[in-house]
Simulated scan of single mutants.
Amino acid sequence: MKAVAIQSFGSPSGLAVIDLPVPAPADGQVLIATEAIGVGGVDVLIRSGALADYGFAEGHIPGSEVAGTVTAVGDGVDTSWIGRRVWAFTGVGGGYVEQAVAPVDEVLPLPAGLSAVDAVTLGSSGVVAHFALAHAHFAPGESVLVRGAAGSIGVTTVQLAARGGAGAVAVTTSSAERGDRLRKLGATHVLDRSGEGDADAPPGYDVIVDIVAGADLPSFFARLNPNGRMVAVGMVGGPPPADFGMTMMAAFRKSMSFATFSADTVPVSDRRAVRAGQFAAAGRGELEMVVHELLPLDQAVSAHRKMDAGEVFGRIVLTP
């Protein structure tokens, strides 16, 4: 089968198409003929080499979510899965392939009317957005800022905050055109990447969901209201400065909070329940999936170049 592997860390040109034998599902796993493969920010970080210290080595196959049809099952898995169209989380890799294996606990049937492309556009990002807002103890009426809102997590967070009754939903993004698109998804205020640019925006926010991190993260503490909460769900801009917490300490009397969030800390059963609800909502037209572009699997290099250039609004999806 065709697969895409990281032959060398660094630029997207380090990705290469390779041939691998079709894997056999192990105990508790299913084999999926992929129809759609999500390209995520973590794939880019792994490919760049930024996460090499976390055990990722050259030869790694990126991709964490796929959708397609189950073609085989391992021992201990009900054979009724065979032939069903599903979404699946493959882990921190193994998704850029024509045939993917995944634990059956991380597999969810696709409801009628939800395409494989839509499933990988919403599957992981929707769960992160939902639980990030919960992690921040977001309540109706509170103001929310989504920093780096143009990616799939940001797009979904904007929608969920608006549906959840936020008093205001501000976003940071790189262009007026992207701002207009985010307004149609529920944003009420559009800011530039520094957090400026809208004179009518709230002076502070109760919740900030940060997908960017990077050198400018500490400056956004000043945009938290007293008792405000910032939750970092990504590092597409790289890690923050080592002493970023000193900015919070300097504003000690505001009782601000900072937290990181990874969906890995959420029980599988809870992730499944939320994802199933979101898939159903998407099927009813209550959530919008934003697909930037469909590209063949063998054009993964092009997909990563677009990600590196910051050109992507929503999600790029690879198709075998």
Rank of each mutant, 00 (worst) to 15 (best):
M1L: 08
K2C: 00
F9Y: 09
F9T: 08
G10M: 02
I18G: 11
L20R: 14
V22W: 11
A24C: 04
P25N: 14
A26F: 08
V30L: 10
L31E: 14
T34A: 08
E35S: 14
A36H: 09
D43M: 07
V44K: 06
L45I: 03
G49N: 11
L51P: 00
A52Y: 02
G55W: 10
E58A: 06
V66W: 08
T69R: 15
T71S: 12
D78P: 03
T79Y: 05
I82Y: 07
R85I: 01
V86W: 11
Y96H: 12
Y96T: 04
V97F: 05
D105R: 09
P111M: 07
A112M: 03
G113H: 03
S115R: 07
V117S: 11
V128Y: 05
A129V: 06
L133Q: 13
A136F: 04
G141E: 14
E142R: 01
S143C: 07
A150H: 11
T156A: 12
V158G: 13
Q159V: 03
G165Q: 12
G167D: 15
A168C: 05
V169L: 07
A170R: 07
A170I: 03
T173A: 07
S174G: 13
A201K: 10
P203T: 10
Y205A: 03
I208W: 07
I211E: 15
I211D: 15
A213K: 09
G214A: 06
P226C: 02
A232P: 00
V233Q: 08
G234V: 02
G238Y: 05
D243K: 01
F244N: 00
M246G: 00
M248F: 11
K254G: 04
S255A: 08
M256F: 02
M256L: 07
V268S: 08
S269L: 11
R271S: 06
A276V: 07
A276S: 14
A276K: 15
H292D: 15
H292F: 06
L294G: 01
L297A: 05
L297H: 09
H304E: 06
D308L: 03
E311H: 01
E311R: 10
V312R: 04
G314R: 15
L318W: 02
